[in-house]
Design a protein around this nucleic acid. Structure first.
Length: 256
DNA sequence: GCGGCTA
């Protein structure tokens, strides 16, 4: 069983107040055995996605993110996995496959790989979903385990959300800002906005007659670049006396 | 009332 809510008003709320322009469009909670799963449909400027959070009985938390298109793929896999699970006999302690993987699938979205493994251990059977290419900065682990008995319930909840919000990831679709050119004395700078499978970026190129170099700045960090730049502008305005810009956590080329 | 073979 699950409970659900849909937020209408939040879709219209100005970006920035929640999670830096991230809106929660709907949420469902399902209790599967000792675990709770939260399925949150969210949206930011990159598009729509579902955050799946697993809360263990002890309060331990892990979560994965799925683009809506990937969530749809996952939903279809869940049907296949639960069919397969239903066809299985009782666990046989003698006949365990390598690493206990009864059935596996993989999904790829941009630079992420999602591994779906139906596994079994002494506690029973479960579907492990793990995500590779994850920047693990002390955050929750990108891996969840759904008890096999709950796969159908999970699929149905996912289906409800996908029926309401569709399977279109949305986000930018080639509507990136125009590039710009700036000339400073004998130097030329170009600002180009691009997009690849890792996301949106700005390419800043310095072009002289026989010299060209460029840096690529992920969209995620534009604001921080701007802040640092602005900070230096301020510092230089204050006068040439004690010019010292607090470095903070932003490391220079010689910092360790 | 869990619990999912590490970094």
């Amino acid at each position: 069983m699950y409970r659900s809510r849909v937020f209408r008003g939040d879709m219209l709320s100005p970006p920035g107040q929640q999670q830096q322009g991230e809106q929660e469009l709907a949420t469902k909670m399902l209790q599967i055995q000792s675990k709770r799963f939260y399925l949150d449909v969210k949206q930011n400027r990159r598009g729509r996605f579902i955050k799946v959070a697993e809360i263990g009985a002890d309060g331990r938390r892990s979560q994965i993110f799925l683009a809506l298109s990937t969530a749809a793929e996952f939903r279809d896999h869940l049907s296949t996995f639960s069919d397969f699970y239903a066809s299985l006999g009782p666990p046989n302690p003698e006949n365990v496959p390598e690493d206990g993987k009864l059935k596996s699938e993989m999904m790829i979205k941009d630079n992420r790989r999602y591994y779906l493994d139906l596994k079994e251990n002494s506690r029973g059977r479960f579907l492990r979903v793990s995500v590779s290419q994850t920047i693990t900065r002390g955050g929750p682990r990108s891996q969840i385990a759904i008890p096999a008995q709950g796969m159908i319930e999970f699929r149905d909840a996912l289906t409800d959300l996908l029926e309401e919000f569709g399977t279109d990831d949305g986000g930018f679709k080639g509507e990136l800002p125009e590039g710009r050119h700036m000339r400073v004395e004998n130097k030329n700078f170009y600002f180009d906005i691009g997009q690849n499978n890792r996301g949106i970026y700005m390419r800043i190129s310095e072009v002289k007659t026989n010299f060209r170099t460029a840096i690529t700045v992920p969209e995620k960090s534009w604001a921080r670049f701007r802040d640092i730049f602005a900070d230096y502008c301020e510092k230089m305005k204050e006068g040439g006396e004690k010019v010292s810009v607090a470095g903070g956590s932003e490391a220079g080329p010689n910092a360790k």
